[in-house]
């Protein structure tokens, strides 16, 4: 195992039993992901991009340990992942905040799960609320917060119990364009500050290129890695309009091509 390797996928496949549409009552096997092999480096920001149906969410369930692969294995720090753990924090697209808890209460929930004593929880929650700029909203319930604020709380909740790896499942997909851009740069800032390994799943090419040091391009049917693209951008936060940078445009175009090759093939059939 190389020294800076954090997560390794070894020939991971996952199939489900689904209803057979042709025969009533019959079932068939459906393969969501197949032959999946790649590694994530320690402290790396890696984005996974692919069309819908390429098994992105299946992949996230596998890393988080909520389900286990049908074959192959996923290792973290050299040890096979067998179940969920607080060494990984998940941020979901739909926030998944507990509606009966305030912003602070939601953050404290993860801390409680970790077994942190009560008096320390409050302090930590305050710290992470201020990290995402929501100190003034500590006592608000989720329904009193905007979508962007909810997602900040969710990010703070996952960061608070100090996981090694942050898993993000299309976290900004439900937000409006401006809020999304703000949160993207904020996430980069948080990443630089906390040095977490981040696995970020998205279907947005721009988002994948802007955030990721590397972009894993997935193809559907069944989902597998098509190519991993290195993004050589260095000053994402310093450059106000990095999206017009030639390097960005080039990388974006490469990812675009990889994702659309399939469609062209389809056009000839």
């Amino acid at each position: 195992m190389p020294a800076n390797e954090k997560i390794r996928f070894e020939n991971v496949a996952k199939s489900f039993i689904v209803r057979d549409p042709k025969q009533k009552g019959a079932t068939q096997s459906f393969t969501a992901v197949k032959d999946l092999s790649f590694t994530v480096k320690e402290g790396e920001f890696i984005t996974l991009v692919g069309p819908s149906g390429c098994g992105k969410s299946t992949l996230l369930d596998l890393i988080s340990g909520l389900s286990s692969p049908s074959s192959g294995r996923i290792c973290m720090d050299g040890k096979e992942i067998t179940g969920p753990g607080l060494d990984r924090g998940i941020v979901f697209q739909q926030y998944a905040l507990f509606p009966w808890k305030t912003a602070r209460g939601n953050i404290e929930f993860g801390l409680e799960a970790k077994g942190i004593p009560k008096h320390e929880r409050k302090e930590l929650a305050e710290h992470f609320l201020s990290l995402v700029g929501l100190s003034a909203f500590a006592n608000r319930y989720p329904h009193e917060l905007s979508g962007g604020m909810k997602q900040r709380v969710a990010i703070a909740r996952s960061l608070a119990f100090n996981p090694d790896v942050l898993l993000m499942d299309e976290p900004f997909a439900a937000l409006d364009a401006q809020t999304r851009e703000t949160l993207q740069s904020e996430l980069l800032r948080i990443w630089q500050k906390t040095k977490k390994t981040i696995i970020f799943i998205t279907h947005g090419i721009d988002e994948a290129v802007y955030l990721g040091e590397r972009v894993v391009v997935l193809t559907p049917g069944p989902g597998t890695v098509k190519k991993i693209v290195d993004i050589p951008l260095k000053h994402r936060l310093e450059d106000a309009d990095i999206r017009s940078h030639p390097e960005f445009v080039k990388a974006r175009h490469e990812v675009w091509n990889l994702l659309h090759e399939l469609e062209y093939q389809g056009a000839y059939i």
């Binding site: 909520l66 969920p84 990984r88 998940i90 979901f92 998944a96 507990f98 799960a113 970790k114």
Partner: peptide, 25 residues
């Protein structure tokens, strides 16, 4: 189910899941 998934991902016991998530919800 998303709330259950979210709580499960934090590796809490079934009993705690019941008391802290299912019950209040």
């Amino acid at each position: 189910p998303l709330l259950i998934k979210s709580a499960r991902s934090m590796n809490i016991s079934s009993f705690k899941l019941f008391v802290k998530v299912i019950l209040p919800a």
